[in-house]
Simulated scan of single mutants.
Amino acid sequence: VLSLALLERTGDDELKQAAKRVSAKIAGAVPPPLRHALDANALHAWGFAAPSASAVDLALVRRAIRDEEKLDLSYRDEAGRNTKRIIRPVALIYYAETANIVAWCELRQAIRNFRSDRIEDCRLAGLWFKGEGDRLRQVWVDGWEINESAASA
């Protein structure tokens, strides 16, 4: 229930609606005393909600990850430079202030993180990377281990 409440903070309308549906199903399935506790809002996910990323539909990103379809982005880096990117999205990370798309960037030929609040435009590219998603997620995870090894040295 607390995890579902945290989804309210993502700024992602589709996830918010899904969380409400699941919460209603949970409330309908639990015994009356527990249902009363849920109705009393005894658990809270406090803090501000992330602003919605106006140029990117995160539901579209989640579908692209699931279907292994490339995305065509217009992206503004931290210095404000605009670039066009074709990416292979493999994960979506929700932070309090924004969501990040983890993807293989065809321009940089490496795993990169793309902040949703820096995306100017995002469209399905109509190109696929079928069967590569698991391998690319492993490349991403392997990068964590390299960074952890360097930090402990």
Rank of each mutant, 00 (worst) to 15 (best):
S3L: 15
I86D: 13
A40P: 00
V56T: 10
A153L: 14
L2Y: 13
I86E: 14
A42F: 05
A59V: 03
D13R: 03
A45P: 01
A125I: 01
S52H: 09
Y95N: 08
D121I: 04
A110D: 07
R21E: 06
S149A: 15
C105N: 07
G80V: 08
G28K: 02
W128I: 04
K16C: 02
K16I: 02
L38P: 06
A55P: 03
N82A: 11
R63E: 09
N113G: 12
A110G: 06
R135L: 09
R118T: 01
G80Q: 09
F114Y: 14
S3D: 15
R115A: 10
D12H: 06
V56N: 06
R66Q: 11
F114D: 12
W144F: 10
E120H: 02
L2E: 14
R137H: 09
K20Y: 00
W140D: 10
L107P: 00
L58M: 07
A55C: 11
A19I: 00
H44F: 13
I119C: 08
L43H: 09
L60S: 13
S149I: 11
L71G: 13
K25P: 01
L73S: 12
R112V: 03
A153I: 13
Y75M: 09
L7C: 08
R135C: 05
A5L: 15
L15Q: 07
G47Y: 15
K20Q: 03
L4C: 02
S74E: 09
A49R: 11
D67F: 02
V1A: 10
V56A: 11
E97Y: 15
E8Y: 00
P32F: 01
A40R: 05
L58S: 04
G47W: 15
L15G: 05
Q138F: 09
D142C: 14
A53T: 07
A125S: 04
L71I: 06
L38S: 05
D121Q: 12
A42Q: 11
R62D: 09
S3I: 13
L43R: 14
L15K: 05
R115T: 02
Q109G: 03
A53D: 01
A64P: 04
A40K: 05
A42K: 12
A110E: 06
G28H: 03
G11M: 12
A50V: 04
R123W: 01
A50C: 14
N100S: 14
A151L: 07
S152P: 02
R81I: 10
S152H: 14
R137M: 10
S23L: 01
R63I: 00
N41W: 11
I111C: 06
L71Q: 07
L136C: 02
R112Y: 12
D77P: 10
F129V: 01
D13A: 06
L73D: 11
S23P: 00
P33L: 01
V90Y: 04
A24C: 02
E14F: 00
T98E: 12
E97P: 04
L2H: 12
R21Q: 09
V30C: 14
L15S: 07
S116I: 08
Y75C: 09
K25L: 05
E120Q: 11
E97T: 07
N41A: 15
I111M: 08
